[in-house]
Design a protein around this nucleic acid. Structure first.
Length: 453
RNA sequence: UCCCCAGUAGCUCAGUCGGCAGAGCAAGUGGCUGUUAACCACUGGGUCCGCGGUUCAAGUCCGUGCUGGGGAGCCA
């Protein structure tokens, strides 16, 4: 007999004479002449209830089954005689695959996220984390589907890079040298190399050949960040589009955020419901608001005016040339507009060299998408396509221009306006689930001083 | 890296003014029951985060280190 997933069993529209399924026991309760066993196989949030009557083989062994044990069950799928579930399985045979001893850490009660983080290898067996990682998987699929439907090509940009290209923070060194050796000529690549902080520069080359492209892969930052929104290894989605200006970039970001949210609400309704009930009571209202409202498009200079006018007290003052602080961003998106806000045209001195210089010579065509509770979820820009302007800005930023010869080539040969952005995959998951710590939406989080599992 | 808070049973937490180490859940035993975070009774379970100090006496006060959390910066 073929094994059936519990998700399929529970969605059956009629009884089934013979079924076989396997999974892990969440709880067992003894009645007078039989035992209730709840089994979960990870295919969905819900467990299936098994009725193991005392007349079935090995009943005394079945009574020793503990939470966490693995079982294989055959029997009949019947309508439940009890309340609380439509279907249950009248077992004909319950085979114990393995018994979890009494020190199994997950108990039939609520555990704290902090505790579960210390057993990250077991936490996907809980309702909440099982749901979170099913949603994570579905979101990845939905992203690929969205881009594929839009005619974008998926580009695998390098994980190991040869220079401090992106200039976005501290890098993780990649080397085969031994400790104490620092002669990069003798290193594996013959020069200094690091883990990537962004696939953007590579993606630009492919946007300028395949048209619309995206990358979706791991990204590494060696920043000593200790917050609920930062990890050293995370995943980023980076679309890059030729013949697209900042306005098109912003519209596209909004369309993508909405499309992915709608997709997950549709594909993961049951799992999202868990978060709406137990993690964030305002989740559904927040997501409905996100889908139905037009995102605000707000020039940086206008954002400053709003922040200067308000009576809200801030720890940091605002002013042209100063980047918006978290408190400013949160005020704009959570209190002032109460919906997602795209701030654009930032002062050039606080943004990287590759962002296109505006005609005012003071701002660049940058844009950040801010959402309530999370803050910045997307950062992007129209790219500087003019060779002379780009070189000037690189020199001003004291970058080793010669190392970027290949990047500059794209501006020498058939350069065109193009735009793109990076979206934090984990931050998007936080927004979708209401989970407040980024360490809880990635299977095995990497943070300063922590590389367990 | 900076600021703030916390660390007590397997888990969640209480512990008053410095004076015998506690509860619920979990585990074990027994009972009851179409139960559903089942229920009832009993039993076992402690390096009070580590180190140092003050004191007749420290879970409690002081110093220090470690770990975790919240906030900030950096950013996605």
């Amino acid at each position: 007999m073929e094994r059936i997933k519990i998700k399929k069993l529970l969605s059956s529209d009629k009884p089934i004479e013979q079924v076989l399924f396997k999974g892990w026991v969440r709880t067992r309760r003894d009645a007078k002449s039989f035992s209730f066993i709840e089994v979960n196989d990870g295919s969905c949030l819900k467990n299936i209830q098994v009725i193991a009557d005392e007349t079935i083989p090995h009943y005394t062994d079945i009574q020793k089954i503990t939470t966490g044990s693995a079982v294989s069950v055959t029997g009949k799928l019947i309508e439940s005689k009890g309340k609380g579930q439509r279907w249950e399985v009248a077992a004909e045979n319950v085979q114990i695959i393995s018994i979890a001893p009494e020190n199994f850490p997950l108990q039939k009660k609520r555990h704290s996220d902090e505790f579960l983080r210390t057993i990250a290898h077991l936490r996907p067996r809980t309702n909440k984390y099982g749901a979170a990682f099913r949603i994570r998987s579905e979101l990845a699929f939905t992203i690929h589907k969205f881009f594929n439907d839009k005619g974008f090509r998926y580009i695998h940009t390098p994980i190991i890079t040869g220079s401090d290209c992106e200039g976005a923070g501290e890098l993780f060194r990649v080397t085969t040298l031994n400790a104490g050796e620092s002669d990069f000529d003798q290193d594996f690549f013959g020069k200094e190399s690091n883990l990537t902080v962004s696939g953007q520069l590579s993606a630009e080359m492919f946007a300028l050949s395949l048209g619309d492209v995206y990358t979706f892969g791991p990204t590494f930052r060696a920043e000593n960040s200790n917050t609920s929104r930062h990890v050293a290894e995370f995943w980023m989605v980076e679309p890059e589009m030729s013949f697209c200006d900042l306005s098109g970039n912003m519209s596209f970001a909004e369309e993508m955020v909405k499309n992915l949210t709608v997709g997950i609400l549709d594909r993961c309704a049951e799992d999202i419901e868990l978060f709406a009930r137990f993690v964030d009571k305002t989740l559904m209202a927040t997501l409905e608001n996100l889908i139905s409202s037009d995102f605000v498009q707000l020039p940086y200079s206008e954002a400053l005016k709003i922040l200067e006018k308000t009576t809200e007290k801030f720890d940091y003052e605002v002013g042209f040339g100063k980047d918006l602080q978290s408190e400013h961003e949160r005020y704009l998106t959570e209190k002032y507009f109460k919906k997602p806000v795209i701030v654009y045209d930032y002062p050039k001195q606080i943004k990287p060299f590759y962002m296109r210089l505006n005609d005012d010579d003071k701002t660049v065509a940058a844009m950040d998408v801010l959402v309530p509770r999370i803050g910045e979820i997307i950062g992007g820009s129209q790219r500087e396509e003019r060779l002379d302007v780009l070189e000037t800005r690189m020199t001003a930023s004291e970058l080793p221009v010669d190392q970027y010869w290949w990047y500059l080539d794209s501006r020498r040969y058939g350069t065109v306006p193009h735009s793109g952005f990076g979206m934090g995959f984990e931050r998007f998951l936080m927004m979708l689930t209401g989970i407040s710590n980024i360490r809880d939406v990635i299977p095995f989080p990497r943070t300063p001083n922590t590389i367990d599992f």
